[in-house]
Amino acid sequence: MSDGALFRQDDDGTLVLEGNWLVSTVGEVDQSVRALDGEVRRVDLSGVEEIDTVGAYLAWSVAARHDASIEGADERATRLIEAVQSDEGEEIDVRAERAPVMQRVMGETGDKVINFGYGTRDMVGFFGAAISALGAVIRHPSRFRSKALVRQMELIGVSALGIVGLMSFLIGIVVAQQGAVQLRQFGAEIYTINLTGRLCLRELGVLMTAIMVAGRSGSAFAAQIGTMQLTEEVDAMRTIGISPMEALVVPRILAIVFMMPLLGFYASVMAIIGGAFVSSLTLGIPFATFLSRVQEVVPTYDLWVGLIKAPLFGLIIALTGCYQGMQVKGDSEQVGLRTTTAVVQGIFAVIVLDAFFAIFFSEVGWA
Rank of each mutant, 00 (worst) to 15 (best):
G274D: 06
L248P: 00
M259S: 06
F277L: 12
L254M: 10
V294N: 08
M270S: 07
E246G: 08
P251F: 06
L262I: 10
L263K: 07
I285N: 07
L283W: 07
L283G: 14
F265L: 15
F277E: 03
F265R: 07
S280T: 11
V294Y: 04
S280W: 08
F287G: 12
L254A: 11
F265G: 08
G264Q: 14
F277A: 13
V269W: 01
V269T: 02
Y266P: 01
M260Y: 05
F287V: 09
M270E: 00
A276I: 08
I285T: 08
A271Q: 02
L254E: 01
V257N: 01
M259V: 11
Q295G: 14
S292G: 15
P244F: 05
L248T: 01
E246W: 00
A276P: 10
P251V: 05
T289S: 15
S292L: 12
G264P: 14
L283M: 14
A247C: 07
S279C: 13
G275N: 12
S268C: 04
P286E: 13
G274W: 03
M259Y: 05
P244M: 09
V278Y: 02
S279Y: 05
L263M: 15
I256K: 01
G275P: 09
I285G: 08
S280G: 15
I273C: 12
F265H: 07
A276S: 15
I256V: 11
T282V: 15
M259R: 10
L263A: 10
P286D: 12
S268A: 13
M260V: 13
G275K: 06
I285A: 08
V269A: 07
P251Q: 05
F258D: 00
P244Y: 02
R252Q: 01
S268I: 09
R252A: 11
V249F: 05
V278W: 04
P244K: 09
V257R: 03
V294Q: 10
L263V: 12
G284C: 12
L291R: 02
T282S: 13
S279V: 06
F277Y: 13
R293K: 11
L291F: 05
I272V: 13
P286L: 13
S292N: 15
T289F: 09
G274R: 02
L281G: 13
S292A: 15
S280H: 11
A276Y: 05
E296T: 14
F277T: 10
V250L: 06
E246N: 05
V294I: 13
R293H: 11
S268M: 05
L281H: 12
I256D: 03
G274S: 06
A267C: 10
E246M: 07
L263E: 07
S279P: 12
V278I: 12
G264I: 14
A255H: 00
L283S: 15
F265M: 15
G264T: 15
M260R: 08
I256W: 01
L262S: 00
F265Q: 07
A255D: 00
L283N: 14
P251M: 03
L254F: 10
A271H: 01
Q295P: 10
S268D: 05
S268F: 03
P286T: 09
I256M: 11
V250M: 08
I273K: 05
